[in-house]
Simulated scan of single mutants.
Amino acid sequence: MYRHRSDIQNVFNIDGLETNILDYMNSRPPDPGMAAGLTSSEAIGSNRFGSILDQLIDPCALLELQKHGYAVIDNVMKTSQSSNDQLGEWANKGKTGQDDCRSDTVAFLDRRDALECGLEDQFDFLLTLASHLNDNFDLYASPYKPVFPGTTTRPLTNPKGFNVQMAEYGFCDYYNPHSDNSIDREVDNDGAFGGTAVIHDYLGDDAILPKKRSNWRCITAILYLNEGWKTSDGGQLRMYLDSAHVESPSTARDTHEYIDVNPSNGKLLLFDSRMVHSVEEVLNENKIRRALTLWITRPEESGVSGEDYFMDISPSP
């Protein structure tokens, strides 16, 4: 109903929609997603993009992701201007407002939505990445047991449902420094995970337990759609280096070096979801910055209880 609120606001009373949706979202445990390689859309993608992935997401790119926590790969898959425009028109039907730390708007796509916008190749490509990483990427070791459908040998999964996000930034829009999988500072490590004895067996009695995270996001994959985007247009994604363990993302501006990634058409950015990053203000009033994001998840018995959601879901005009 939320996705079509502008169409139904004059037919149904939706005054309580925001409260009901937020209560529902905040009461749900994290979803472990679906097994990489077993979904219908990914089966399509695997057949079509397997060899392309081997060429593009090659050992050098994976080494960069392993060593530095991010990899930038140019000219992976470009989007036509007509599909970009269609995406903007489609997204206006159901975009969400955001909190005070960001001013962009987002919408979530399933494959039918992607097909409507002429972006089925981009959608399938993103959903193929988890399977490719399971087969080729050496993830950091974890003391926790995987949660099904994740397994010890194939720990990465894809989110279910409307699993690809479109984020849109217009003139002066921004996103302050944040982490896609931040440390949950509300929980004391001594009681965060339940199975601390097992963890000490794995890490040793004197080990400092990992901080509890807010979700199961492991690798963030962003595909940019913006033809002719220049550095002077602003809107760069700013990646703060070696910031995966920063507890207060807002402090990274003063404590960490960074690199800027220009959101040019066809560029793929992969990074550790724990790393702090921001989107700098868009400076060109005649351009709109769009990107597709997939959060590849690693569900584990690590005490994750989910995030608190806050949205402005007032009906679209």
Rank of each mutant, 00 (worst) to 15 (best):
G97Y: 06
D121Y: 02
S131A: 13
Q98C: 07
F148P: 00
A114C: 10
K95S: 04
K145E: 10
F148Y: 09
D104L: 03
D124E: 14
T105H: 12
L139N: 04
T151C: 08
P155Q: 06
V147I: 15
H132W: 14
D99L: 11
T151R: 03
F108H: 10
E116N: 15
R111S: 08
L127F: 11
R111Q: 12
T105V: 15
N134W: 05
D113H: 05
F123K: 02
F148V: 06
R112W: 07
F125I: 10
S103H: 08
K95G: 06
C117M: 15
Y140F: 00
A114G: 05
P146Y: 07
R154K: 14
F125K: 02
R102D: 07
T96G: 14
T152R: 09
L139M: 10
Q122T: 03
N158A: 12
K95W: 02
T157K: 06
A107P: 07
Y144I: 09
H132G: 06
K145P: 04
R154H: 15
F137N: 02
D124P: 00
R102H: 00
S131R: 14
F108V: 10
T96C: 12
G150W: 03
D113N: 15
E116V: 07
Y144W: 15
N136G: 12
D100V: 14
P143A: 13
D138K: 10
K95E: 06
T152L: 12
P159C: 11
T151D: 08
R111G: 09
F108R: 11
A107F: 01
R112H: 13
A141G: 10
Q122F: 02
V106T: 13
L115M: 12
P159S: 14
L156D: 04
P155M: 07
D110L: 04
P143E: 14
Q98W: 01
P149R: 01
R112F: 13
S131E: 15
T96V: 15
A114Y: 03
L139T: 00
A141C: 10
D99E: 11
S103Q: 09
E120W: 01
D135S: 14
D121K: 02
T157D: 02
L156T: 09
F137P: 01
G118E: 05
D113T: 10
N134G: 11
L119Y: 05
A130D: 07
F123V: 05
E116C: 08
D121I: 02
T128G: 13
Q98V: 13
P143R: 09
E116M: 08
T153A: 14
H132N: 09
S103A: 10
F123G: 02
L156C: 12
C101R: 11
L115P: 00
K145H: 00
R112K: 13
L126M: 05
Y140A: 13
F108M: 03
T105F: 08
A141W: 04
R112G: 13
E120H: 11
F148C: 05
T157N: 13
G150F: 00
G97V: 05
L119G: 04
L126P: 00
D110R: 07
K145Y: 02
F148A: 15
P159G: 09
A107S: 12
